[in-house]
Amino acid sequence: MRQLLSHCLEYAGAVCVVTMSLPGMLLSCFKCWTYLYGLYLCLSEAVCCTVPISFLAPILLALWIKYLRIPPPDAKLVEDVLGCDPWALAECNGNGTNESNNERYVMRTVAHRGAGLDAPENSLSALRRAKEKGCSAVEIDVALTSDGVPIVFHDDTVDRITTATGEVKDMTWAKLKNLDISSKHPFSDRYKGERIALLDEAIQECIKLGLRVFLDLKGDDLKLVPVVLDAFDKNSRLYKTAVVSSFNPYLIYMIRRADPNIVCSMAWRPNFYAYQSYDGTFGESHPRFNGLISHILALLVDAASDWALHNVTYYILGLSAVLLQKDNVTLETVRKWKERGVRVIPWTVNHPLEKQFFSRILKVTYMTDTLDGEPNRLTS
């Protein structure tokens, strides 16, 4: 016991030295203290109590999780939507069967926001351009206006891609529908006058073009749940062509609880709750909170949600895929999620060499902002 405590303390010291930052040191020390104190409580209860609650609690927790769990959709339905898993292509093409590589659909590349570098992001023109370039799947973002109209838009504000200013949630559809989302695009001269699309317009365009579609729910508004359910009710074809995704597990849970046949994924990146952005080279940037205490609490939430996603959340939600920030995806990552029956889809892979790595080494479907530099693998 003394040796174990010594090793734990040495580990805590090492972690604190490596992380250097005060929030990192506090988080590491908190984790270490939690493990040590938890171990102490469990051992003392086991020795002193007739009925050790610390050993019964995990059993009760497991039963509760089992009760909450929503089973994933039928494997055949998942394959209809996502296609044959590129990782298991040889098996999917039937070791011992006569099926060729061209007889089953394989989702090679997903045009992120309709490939927003090639045409104005989330626009109907972007969807058409993706189809013209041979892409079979797109990702679009679903948001709500102040008067509850579901639209296809990514940011919280309109500032980045239009000449207007303001938050989407505070603007009506009557005001948003007149904004030109091509004005700041590199190819603005080709798409002049491009407008924000209604969700229903984008869905109908995807159906018309024969595109699979990832519906990425922006924000935490529970009003998005009936919007998604209504879209599937009106367009039954979505069950075999659409994936619903979000950073918020509760939105996914509410959707799949209401309709377990909807194929869902969950998006993740490091420290989503504590920082507004992340880059694999430079790490996290732009803290969401100014106060030290709020920032530390956000880091703790990130640590808890990260652990939960890999151990509990995916199981409860019945996820079919996880959308992971590309710099955190390795062969080991793909293998571990594959063992859980969940596919890994990295985002956002834009450099031609990165595309080669993810397609040929990791053998995964990936999301990209541009369909230029594709390694001749868009269609199966």
Rank of each mutant, 00 (worst) to 15 (best):
F289C: 02
V263W: 05
Y275I: 03
S265T: 05
P270Q: 12
I296F: 13
Y278V: 01
L292D: 11
I262C: 14
C264S: 12
N261V: 01
A274V: 05
Y275C: 12
P287C: 08
W268P: 08
Y273K: 11
H286W: 09
F289D: 00
Q276L: 05
A258M: 08
I296P: 01
T281S: 12
H295S: 11
V263T: 12
N261C: 07
S265Q: 09
D259A: 08
M266R: 06
A274R: 14
G280C: 06
C264F: 06
P287Y: 04
W268D: 05
I262L: 13
F282M: 09
N261Q: 10
Y278H: 10
S277Y: 11
D279S: 11
R269H: 05
Q276H: 10
S285K: 12
F272C: 14
P270L: 11
R256P: 00
E284S: 15
H295R: 11
I262E: 14
S294G: 05
L292F: 14
I262Y: 13
V263Y: 03
A267W: 03
R288E: 00
I293S: 15
P270Y: 08
S285G: 13
W268V: 00
D259H: 06
C264P: 02
R257G: 08
E284H: 07
V263C: 15
N261D: 13
N261A: 13
H295W: 03
E284L: 06
N271R: 02
N261E: 13
Y275T: 06
S285H: 08
H286E: 12
P260E: 10
H295E: 02
D279P: 00
V263Q: 07
V263A: 09
Y273G: 01
N271Y: 00
L292I: 10
F289Q: 04
Y278N: 05
G280W: 05
S277D: 15
N290M: 11
F272D: 14
I296K: 06
G280Q: 06
Y278F: 11
H295L: 04
W268C: 03
Y275W: 10
N290R: 14
I293V: 15
